[in-house]
């Protein structure tokens, strides 16, 4: 018969589960951090650049290289439906790939203007179906520009419902951001657990966590009531 101080089968199982959980929590924290490291550095570093648009060393747009050219095209036939279909057909003929952006409202069926963007490249396309010609301005930006666009390349804009993802790689880019965000949330939760199981660190950790939460809450919620 087990004594009062001897662990029972149930408590032994629970402590084994806890030890296993702690071990795997730590392991998965490392693993998630290592696999997401470069993505995390990209978003951190590009976030810093976007937060300081006046940093001249990272200027990309004014240092761009523009190329202008005109090409003959075959106007898309009636089987090509909608603006997106026509834009895709023009891009196929020009051999351009990227995310299509709508910047102007179409008023003339023969005139068609749109942009195509991918990190490092901006294409400003004006098609004239009556003349069967298209003029293209191709702007190439430097590495700083590529880094900044990688941060924001989602293919959608909250305030413009016309913009939707139409390039497969934009979807890959957007989902990779989701994965990085989910991975970071997991890493935060796993580190919270690792902190919590250290009783000697609880008080200091709680003070730091509380302070951080108050500061974040001030900006996200508090400012609305204060001003």
């Amino acid at each position: 018969m087990p004594s009062a101080t001897e662990p029972t089968g149930k408590s032994l199982g629970a402590s084994r589960f806890r030890a296993g959980f702690e071990r795997w929590n730590r392991k998965l924290h490392f693993y998630a951090g290592l696999i997401l490291l470069f993505f995390m550095w990209l978003f951190a570093f590009s976030g810093l650049l976007l937060n300081h648009p006046t940093w001249s060393f990272a200027e990309s747009w004014s240092n761009r290289k523009d190329t202008n050219y005109e090409r003959e095209i075959t106007a898309p036939g009636p089987e090509v439906k909608g603006d997106l279909g026509q834009a895709r057909e023009i891009l196929r003929q020009l051999g351009i790939e990227g995310e299509i952006l709508w910047t102007t409202t179409r008023t003339n069926a023969n005139q068609f203007e749109f942009q195509v963007r991918r990190p490092g490249h901006f294409f400003f396309i004006k098609a004239d179906f009556a003349r069967q010609r298209v003029t293209v301005r191709h702007s190439v930006v430097n590495l700083w520009g590529v880094i900044k666009v990688l941060h924001v390349f989602t293919g959608v804009q909250l305030d413009d419902p016309r913009q939707s993802r139409d390039w497969a790689l934009t979807t890959v880019s957007a989902y990779s951001m989701d994965v990085v965000a989910a991975g970071l949330i997991f890493m935060v939760l796993s580190s919270l657990y690792m902190w919590w199981v250290l009783p000697q660190k609880r008080l200091l950790g709680a003070v730091v966590l509380g302070l951080g939460s108050i500061i974040c809450g001030l900006f996200c919620i508090g400012l609305r009531w204060l001003f």
Binding site: F38, F39, P119, G120, F153, L169, V172, S176
Partner: peptide
């Protein structure tokens, strides 16, 4: 694996 997927994706996009 993370570096490969990151640089692979950045290369394919740009």
């Amino acid at each position: 694996a993370g570096a490969l997927s990151f640089f692979g994706m950045a290369y394919a996009l740009s």
